[in-house]
């Protein structure tokens, strides 16, 4: 099995009805650690993640994985900003991706029980997913993505509606996954979280990759005035 990384974006643009939403972006990402995407509302974080994942229309340029796009897609998962719940029970949501990949029901349910316990949904397996609270949905969406053990996991604001404790638990799971070799690319508005998780930071502004830096340094010495203003919570022009 070949590796996904490094992945190269060459003048990649995400477009919608002829309008460029993100890009052109030139970028190379390699295979380890956690990349955190930050930027103000509407900067294009979601669109950027989707473009890389392959679910936003590529209007120009190219994205080159170290393997076929097909293979790359098979080994990645995406946790959406607004989690999509299948109209089924929590258990059925969890086993869904495994069953679609041909795993037996028994094995899938074993794994589902482990993951449900891990994200604190162990007592809710028979509950209907659409009636879960916002935070519970996010945890379920995370577990449903991680259960397939992807090599690359996209997370679009995974902790947006979690309380402090749940957020710490999720971050712990993410750190563990990272230590186990899973590549994480996530967007967040929580600078504390960005600091805690980031090995690498991408700062997006108006659809451009404005700045890029290694984890801790980016926060202590942002290279551009815009990044500095954003980190200070000022208005970014």
């Amino acid at each position: 099995m070949s590796d996904l990384f490094p992945v190269r974006l060459e003048a990649a643009r995400a477009t919608r009805r002829g309008r460029t939403l993100v890009g052109p972006v030139d970028l190379e990402l390699d295979g380890a650690g956690t990349t955190v995407v930050i930027g103000p509302n509407g900067a294009g974080k979601t669109t950027f993640l989707r473009m890389l994942h392959g679910t936003a229309r590529l209007g120009g340029g190219r994205i080159r994985w170290n393997c076929t796009t097909e293979e790359a897609r098979h080994h990645q998962c995406f946790v959406f900003q607004q989690p999509v719940m299948l109209r089924r029970t929590v258990m059925q949501n969890l086993i869904y991706p495994l069953r679609m990949r041909g795993m037996s029901r028994g094995e899938a349910e074993d794994r589902a029980r482990r993951w449900a316990a891990r994200v604190g949904l162990g007592s809710m397996l028979t509950r209907q997913a659409p009636v879960l609270s916002g935070g519970e949905r996010q945890k379920l969406a995370l577990a449903r993505a991680m259960i397939t053990e992807p090599k690359l996991l996209f997370l679009d604001e995974p902790c947006a509606s979690l309380d402090g404790r749940a957020m710490r638990e999720i971050e712990e799971i993410l750190q563990e996954a990272r230590a186990g070799g899973m590549r994480l690319i996530l967007s967040t508005h929580d600078m504390g979280q960005a600091r805690r998780l980031a090995d690498e930071v991408l700062f997006l502004l108006h659809g451009w990759l404005h700045d890029r830096g290694a984890g801790p340094e980016f926060f202590t010495q942002p290279a551009t005035p815009q990044a500095r203003a954003f980190l200070n919570g000022d208005i970014v022009e």
Partner: peptide, 13 residues
């Protein structure tokens, strides 16, 4: 329903 599921199922390939 497809509108609701679209992103997820596309993403799950």
């Amino acid at each position: 329903l497809w509108q609701e599921y679209h992103d997820l199922l596309i993403s799950m390939n």
